[in-house]
Simulated assay, not measured.
Amino acid sequence: MKKTFAAVFAAGAVLVAGTPALAQSAQAPALGPYGYGAVKLGMSAKQAKATGKVVHKSGGGRDACSTWDLKSHPTGKDAGGLFLSKRRGVAVIFAGKGMKTPEGIGLGATMKQIKKAYPKVNTRTEGNPSVRVPGNSKAYYMFGVNKHGRLEELALALNNQDCVS
């Protein structure tokens, strides 16, 4: 059976018919180069809250950084999806399940896949591998790889972030 594809243009709108996957797929935002969807690195707490995409978890007051979650990717009780610095705004965004960089790297990727996507990745023996974010010289990706060589933690961070080590 032959499947067909049709597009109808009416008053500036596009209606797509054909395979269900084509008609229903929505492009998920990428982690990087400047943030995740509406949440951008460097945003103040007020700006981040105004997106409606984040929820405050802990910290603030005298703390240098506060912990937040992306509403679309909540974390556990003792974790955070993003860290907001009093001095620098949104400083670090951690990847949740299903989130990927524009180069297609997400949780579960292998070190081989990371090196292919980011040939300049720093794989120093101490600390986590990292690489400058393509298209944003003010940020880097940090890769937390487990003993099996799989990515179990991925973060997009400002070069001068002061929230996580």
Rank of each mutant, 00 (worst) to 15 (best):
D63I: 01
R62H: 07
L84Y: 01
A64F: 11
T75F: 09
T67E: 12
Y118D: 03
S130G: 11
V54G: 03
G76M: 15
S25F: 06
N136L: 13
D69P: 08
R88P: 00
E126W: 04
G127C: 11
V55T: 15
K57T: 11
H73I: 06
L70C: 02
A64G: 15
N128S: 12
K46G: 02
G106E: 05
G76P: 13
P134D: 11
W68Y: 10
Y140T: 08
V39K: 05
L82W: 03
V131E: 11
M111Y: 03
K86S: 11
G60E: 07
S66T: 10
L84F: 01
G108I: 13
V90M: 00
K86Y: 02
S25N: 09
T125Y: 07
P119N: 03
V54D: 01
Y118W: 05
M99V: 03
V39T: 07
L41W: 03
S58V: 03
K57W: 09
V39M: 04
V92C: 04
T75V: 08
M43K: 01
A139F: 05
T101L: 05
V54E: 02
V55Q: 15
G61W: 09
A139L: 08
G76Y: 15
L41G: 10
T75H: 10
G80W: 01
R124W: 01
G61S: 11
A139M: 08
M43D: 00
G80K: 05
Y118T: 07
A50K: 12
V54S: 03
R124D: 13
G108N: 10
L82T: 02
A28Q: 14
A50G: 10
T75E: 07
N136Q: 06
G76D: 14
A139D: 05
S25T: 08
Q27N: 14
G89Q: 01
H56P: 02
G80E: 04
Y118K: 03
T110V: 05
L31R: 02
T110I: 07
L107H: 05
E103S: 12
S44A: 04
L31F: 01
S85L: 06
V133A: 09
